[in-house]
Design a protein around this nucleic acid. Structure first.
Lengths: 200, 200
DNA sequence: GCCCCTAACTAATACTATTAGTTTTATTGT
DNA sequence: ACAATAAAACTAATAGTATTAGTTAGGGGC
C-alpha cells in the first residue's frame, strides 16, 4: 500500500524524533508506526525488535553526545577542557533529556554494538585527562571518577533529586567539577596547573 | 478463595522479595499475584496501581539504604564517616541492585510521599558534612556533589559502563571519594574536624 | 445464627510486543 | 514491454501488560 521506502535508518530517525517530542515514557511501537503512517507489524521489516531499536536509538544518542563533547573541548586543554567537557555533558542531558533517558535505560551495556559506542564515550574524556600527566592506570581510574560525577549529577538533576534545596544547581555543578579538577591536579603531580604550557 | 488476609503491607513486602529474587525487569502484577496465590485483579483491593506500588517499594528501598548509611556512620566523623557512608551506599547498590534499580527508575521524584523519603536520604549525608565547618549553603552544594559521585558510580558500575578497563573498581571508588574528601577539606578551611568556615 | 464488609473472584477492555502468512509493489532481467 | 523476484506493507492471531466493573463468598461483630 503506497510503499514509502522506509528503512532501518529512517525508522530509527523517526523514533528519535518521537522520543524527543513526546517523551521516552510515551514511546511505543504502535505510536512510532502511526507516526510513519504504517501498521505496527510493518516496522519489523526494518528492525528486529523494540530492544534492538532502542539500542540503535541509544547509539545515535551517544554519538550526538560524544560529538558535542569533542566539539566542546576542541582547541582546549587542562582545566579549560575539563570544564568545557563537563558543561557539554550536562547541557546534553538537560536539552535532550528524553534521549539521555534512553542511554540510561539500558540495564546492561553488554551488547557488542553498544560497546563500540561505549568506547567513543571515553575518548574525549581520555583526551582531556591526557593533559594531566597521569599514568595509564590513573587515567582509567579518573575517567571513571569524571563519568561518575557527570552522570550522577545529570541523573539526580533530571529525576528531581536536587530540587529540595535553595542552592543554585549550576554552582553545585561547578563545585563538583572543580573538585575533580583539583583532584586531578594533585594526582598528576601538582606541577601542571596553568593549563596551557604543560605537557608530559 | 480461602482468603489469607492480604494487606497493603504484605503485598509490598512480597513485591520487594520478588524483585530481589527475579529482578525488576521481570516484575509484573501478574507475577506478584501468582506468588501470592491470588488473581491479578485481587491486588487492587490493597494497592491503587502499579505506579503507587512501585512508590511504596521505592520508599522501602530508600528506608533500608538510609538505615544502612546511618548504621555505617554511627560513632564516626570526618573522613572516616565520609568513607563509611560512601562504602555503605555502594554496598547497597551492589547487594540490592534490583531494589536500587527501583529507586533509579522513578522518572520524577515529585510525589509528596517520596519527598519525605528524599529528605531522609540527605540526613546522613548532612550529618557527615556537618563535621567539615561548611556554611549552610556549602553543605547544600556538597551534599549534591557527594550524591552525584555515589549515585553516578553505582549507576555506571551496575550498567556495566565501568567494565571496559583493566582497573580495579574498588580503587576507582576510593579515588573518587578521596577526591571529594580533599575537596571538602579545602572548602571547610583545611580542617576536617572543627573547621571555622573559611571560604574558598 | 445473621449481617455486613470486603477480600478475592470472573469477565472484559485496552494496551503492549511479536510472529506467521498473505498481498502488493518496485525493481530487475530478458 | 513482460515475467520473475525480493521485500515492503498488510491482516490476523497470540501472549503478555495494567486496569475496571460487577459478583461471590468468607470472617468478624452483633
Amino acid at each position: 500500500m503506497a510503499r514509502q521506502g522506509l528503512s532501518k535508518d529512517s525508522v530509527v530517525r523517526a523514533a528519535v524524533c518521537l522520543i524527543e517530542e513526546k517523551g521516552f515514557q510515551q514511546f511505543s511501537m504502535g505510536k512510532l508506526a502511526a507516526r510513519l503512517h504504517v501498521k505496527t507489524a510493518s516496522l519489523y521489516n526494518h528492525i528486529e525488535s523494540l530492544e534492538k531499536l532502542l539500542e540503535c536509538i541509544g547509539g545515535e544518542a551517544v554519538r550526538r553526545l560524544v560529538w558535542l563533547e569533542n566539539q566542546a573541548i576542541a582547541g582546549k586543554r587542562g582545566e579549560e577542557a575539563l570544564f568545557a567537557l563537563a558543561e557539554a555533558y550536562r547541557a546534553f542531558a538537560r536539552e535532550h533529556c528524553e534521549l539521555y533517558r534512553v542511554i540510561m535505560a539500558f540495564p546492561k551495556w553488554n551488547n557488542p554494538a553498544l560497546e563500540q559506542e561505549a568506547g567513543e564515550i571515553v575518548t574525549p574524556i581520555l583526551k582531556v585527562l591526557s593533559g594531566y600527566g597521569l599514568t595509564e592506570m590513573q587515567q582509567f581510574h579518573w575517567q571513571r571518577v569524571l563519568r561518575a560525577v557527570m552522570g550522577g549529577f545529570a541523573f539526580h538533576e533530571q529525576s528531581g533529586g536536587f530540587a529540595h534545596f535553595p542552592a543554585d544547581r549550576d554552582e553545585s555543578f561547578r563545585i563538583a567539577v572543580r573538585c575533580v579538577a583539583d583532584g586531578l591536579q594533585r594526582a598528576g603531580g601538582g606541577d601542571g596547573e596553568d593549563g596551557k604550557g604543560n605537557f608530559i
